[in-house]
């Protein structure tokens, strides 16, 4: 047993620190953004639940863009390189960012990836965040726009259950609409839920299977 000796009150001190815990990441995100702006590159942060279709969507978007502009993809896969392999089939530069311990990408990791990438001639970088709807909102990466991908297979209450993810987004994609009828999920109700949280946000329904909405997403991203 360790004997505890109580301190007399005059030995107790309170010190104000006022130290932000989000600021360090926010500062690195600003540095990333400055580097991207300098090269005329728009980075798009793609977030969403596991399996919502982030990789498939990025692959489709890249397919429609790569002949017009320079595109690269950063892939934040927690452990494997499956997603990176899939996107690499589009023969655009892919950087895999492994987050062994953390569950989300942060600005430091993205900054490292940026420094490893040949930035000349690039116009757009997609950053696939880790499939996790709860985390990444507090950790900006330096992207110009954040896209949240929800899919109808996550059920009708996805937005109501995870509302905060949408507050920091600039674009919401409702994916897998080819399955909406089979799932009995209303795309317009999901869209209404999003607008209830954030009235001015653009919501685009897509199907990576039929290709519906893909061109619209690309136009929206090129306009940000």
């Amino acid at each position: 047993m360790i004997q505890q000796i109580e301190a007399s009150p005059d030995e107790i001190y309170d010190i104000e620190l006022e130290h932000s815990l989000l600021e360090a990441n926010a500062k690195l995100a600003q540095e990333n953004r400055a580097l991207l702006d300098h090269h005329g590159i728009t980075a798009i942060d793609v977030m969403g639940a596991i399996g919502s279709g982030k990789t498939t969507l990025i692959t489709r978007l890249v397919e429609g863009l790569k002949d017009q502009i320079g595109v690269a993809v950063f892939n934040g896969d927690a452990t494997t390189s499956n997603d990176a392999d899939l996107i690499a089939s589009q023969s655009v530069p892919v950087v895999q960012i492994a987050t062994v311990k953390g569950c989300h990408l942060d600005a430091n990791l993205v900054g490292k990836a940026l420094r490893k990438t040949k930035l000349d001639n690039l116009r757009l970088i997609f950053i696939e965040n880790i499939g996790n709807l709860i985390c990444p909102a507090e950790f900006p990466l330096g992207s110009k726009a954040r896209v949240v991908v929800v899919s109808v297979t996550e059920g009708p209450y996805m937005v109501r259950k995870h509302p905060h993810m949408f507050l920091g987004a600039q674009l919401v994609v409702i994916n897998k609409i080819d399955l909406a009828e089979a799932m009995g999920v209303s795309v317009s109700e999901l869209s209404e839920d999003v607008h209830r949280l954030k009235p001015d946000i653009t919501v685009i329904p897509t199907s990576c299977k039929t290709g519906a909405g893909i061109d619209q997403v690309n136009s929206a991203l090129l306009a940000v």
């Binding site: 107790i12 309170d14 010190i15 104000e16 620190l17 815990l21």
Partner: peptide
């Protein structure tokens, strides 16, 4: 929107 450490309370044997 922020999340910050406001202050810390501790015992010290030297004046702080």
């Amino acid at each position: 929107t922020d999340c910050a450490i406001k202050s810390v309370r501790f015992v010290s044997d030297e004046p702080v």
